[in-house]
């Protein structure tokens, strides 16, 4: 039996332009990013206390979003992560769907690569459709964006409804932008910005 080597075409969107759009005028949007490039993207879009960046704990971004959304029901939580990070936490797509929080959205910046480790192809270039996975897990609202008009249209929705969106970005490398990586610092400033006291 022969294997087909036909990969789907790469996304074309510039990841920094996508992040800048999604995080423009963030207000009190609570943002959680995944290990790797989406952490750099969010930092490049403008560091702020209500961004919580993962530099490790791969696969954990969406679940951090869930705990946060439960704890802060009057605010909206946006998890912005990559395809590789979400694939490692693929079960969380089902957990979030089952938990049905109205104030929690996920945006997967999908370059179909493991960008941190040498741009190896990820499962999203091998047949996995994360938006279809989310729909099959019970997410009522899913979307795929392939151009900036679609990303712009997603921006308000990702702040007001429980939406799982896949945004197909280019695998091209972009300059590193390194936001703070001290977890204790990130935690304390996030909680302080919500008016929560230290120990």
């Amino acid at each position: 039996m022969s294997r087909s080597n036909a990969y789907p075409p790469d996304g074309t969107l510039d990841r920094r332009a996508v992040a800048a759009c999604l995080l423009r005028d963030p207000g009190d949007l609570l943002v959680v990013t995944g290990l790797g490039s989406t952490t750099y993207d969010a930092g490049a879009a403008g560091d702020r206390p209500l961004n919580f960046y993962l530099w490790g704990a791969m696969g954990g971004a969406a679940m951090i979003g869930l705990g946060l959304a439960i704890a802060q029901p009057t605010k909206h939580v946006l998890v912005m992560t990559g395809d590789g990070e979400q694939l490692m936490g693929i079960g969380a797509i089902a957990t979030l769907a089952g938990a049905r929080r109205p104030n929690l959205s996920v945006a997967v910046l999908d370059n179909a690569r493991f960008g941190e480790t040498g741009a190896q192809r990820s499962h999203t270039s091998l047949g996995t459709d994360l938006a279809a996975v989310a729909k099959a897990c019970g997410w009522e609202a899913t979307a795929v964006a392939e151009d900036m008009d679609a990303v712009e249209a997603l921006r308000p929705r990702l702040r007001r409804e429980p939406l799982f969106a896949v945004i197909r970005i280019s695998p091209a490398e972009v300059p590193r932008h390194l936001p703070p990586r001290d977890g204790a610092y990130l935690t304390h400033r996030f909680r302080a910005a919500l008016g929560l006291p230290p120990l």
Partner: peptide
Amino acid sequence: AVVLTTEEEGIAMAAGAWLGGQ
């Protein structure tokens, strides 16, 4: 109460809870 698909999800969820004051 939240049912998980795998245990490590709960560690991340607990982190989110703490970030949000719970």
